[in-house]
């Protein structure tokens, strides 16, 4: 039997997975302190690197997991949904998102964590997100050209660069470890470690 083993994510099993995955995700985010908007925003002032550490640790872990499970024939990667690439909308949307993130101090997922932990600013961000989505829907006729621009379909780096997936995996690991080393060195020099929390 190859994984993924649930063909659809509807039904009791699929939604049970949703809940379990969500709880674990929220737990992990809160443990890392990303439910705290000041900590998250600190990333963009160079005072706190939790966002970078968590994001790249998670990416590397999942990426290595997918690669090796596929290598061993346990996981059929063709059956794992890869988000499609839309060059321009994702570049512009990403930039907008980044601005929103430093202004709001939370992203959609962490805003739920913050709100659940009692942070009223978490609720504010969640409310803003809903409003932003509705604004997008209302303004859609104005931006649908941008929205539909430059589709590239399912495009991964191995496809794009015409190199084996293992090469890209190795490069991402190297980049992540390099970034971690650089950040650790920077933190040591800036003495960013009052006792207790880091």
């Amino acid at each position: 039997m190859t994984l993924p083993f649930l063909a659809s994510d509807a039904g009791a099993a699929g939604l049970g997975v949703a809940l379990a995955v969500g709880v674990a995700f929220g737990w992990g985010l809160e443990r890392a302190g990303l439910g705290n908007a000041r900590r998250l925003a600190g990333q963009f002032f160079g005072t706190d690197f939790t966002v970078l550490k968590v994001l790249f640790s998670a990416i590397v872990t999942a990426m290595l997991g997918v690669f090796w499970l596929a290598q061993m024939g346990i996981l059929d990667p063709a059956r794992v949904y890869v988000p499609e690439t839309w060059l321009l909308p994702q570049a512009v949307g990403g930039a907008l998102f980044g601005v929103g993130m430093v202004a709001g101090g939370l992203c959609p997922g962490t805003s739920c964590v913050a709100a659940a932990a009692g942070r009223r600013d978490g609720l504010a961000v969640m409310g803003g997100m809903l409003a932003g989505i509705l604004l997008f829907a209302a303004a859609f006729p104005l931006i649908d050209q941008l929205y539909e621009a430059t589709p590239a379909g399912t495009l991964t780096f191995p496809d794009l660069l015409r190199v084996p997936p293992g090469t890209v995996v190795a490069a991402v690991v190297a980049m992540a470890l390099g970034a971690f080393a650089g950040v650790e060195a920077f933190e040591r020099r800036a003495a960013l470690r009052p006792g207790g929390a880091s």
Binding site: F67, W68, A70, P165, G166, V169, A174, L177
Partner: peptide, 21 residues
């Protein structure tokens, strides 16, 4: 330990090359 594990798995991935559909 995690860093060493990641580096090892990454290096092996480079050697292993291809996976996927």
């Amino acid at each position: 330990l995690l860093a060493i594990a990641a580096a090892t798995l990454g290096a092996l991935a480079l050697v292993a090359g291809g996976a996927g559909a």
